[in-house]
Amino acid sequence: MTDVVMHAENVHKSFGKLEVLKGISLEVLKGETVCIIGPSGSGKTTFIRCINHLEKMDSGRIEVNGQLIGYRQRGDRLVEDSERNIARQRTQIGMVFQRFNLFPHKTALQNVIEAPVHVLGVPKDQAIGLATALLGRVGLADKVDTYPGKLSGGQQQRVAIARALAMGPTLMLFDEATSALDPEVIGEVLSVMEELAAAGTTMIVVTHEMGFARKAANRVVMMDEGLIIEEGTPEHFFEAPRNARTKQFLSKIL
């Protein structure tokens, strides 16, 4: 089972009285692209945020590369891990946010080299070489010295992808990466993501872009009201969904 990158088991999470995750179990294999779809409020974003412990869970367990994330086993209980260990685990999990969250006081290049230099201790000139290559790969070779405020949403999101990739993550998380974008720039971000998927990056993608799910996903997972209600290949999903709620959701969105 060495090729399991992400293993989630019975993840529960409540915000106050509202139970958003009611027992999510999911396994993602190396090189796989898994798209999580579902209506808003279904818990997709909360779940993906649990995977790098930006959100604490109430029960269940999540492992990335066989390592328990965010918690330590103490007897038969899980206790929250130290900040140092959590930070170290996050270095191998890249995350791309809906609202980009680029550092506005740093140029595109500085955004990308920040964590490799200050977290991993990569020598600066080496980090610059890597960052320049990554920015070239997302089509922004001419924007290395530009501040995020001067970039379009699509360009900002591509910098954010390069920033996450610069850490050399074994798993990439995309949290509605195109939802905050203008329609005309969604394509440029999706094509970068498709290339990553095709290159064998292990990705978990929360998205409303069914075209992307159909084209790039190995597996599609449908969430509703805090549960995974259907799971399968894109072909299965878009041609013969079984679940009534999946059918209803897809008919609304397609």
Binding site: N52, N101, A164
Partner: peptide
Amino acid sequence: IDRGQMEAAKSLGMRYGL
């Protein structure tokens, strides 16, 4: 400062102080 800034920093493996 937007909360997303701290989240982005954390997701890159930065600790609170850094």
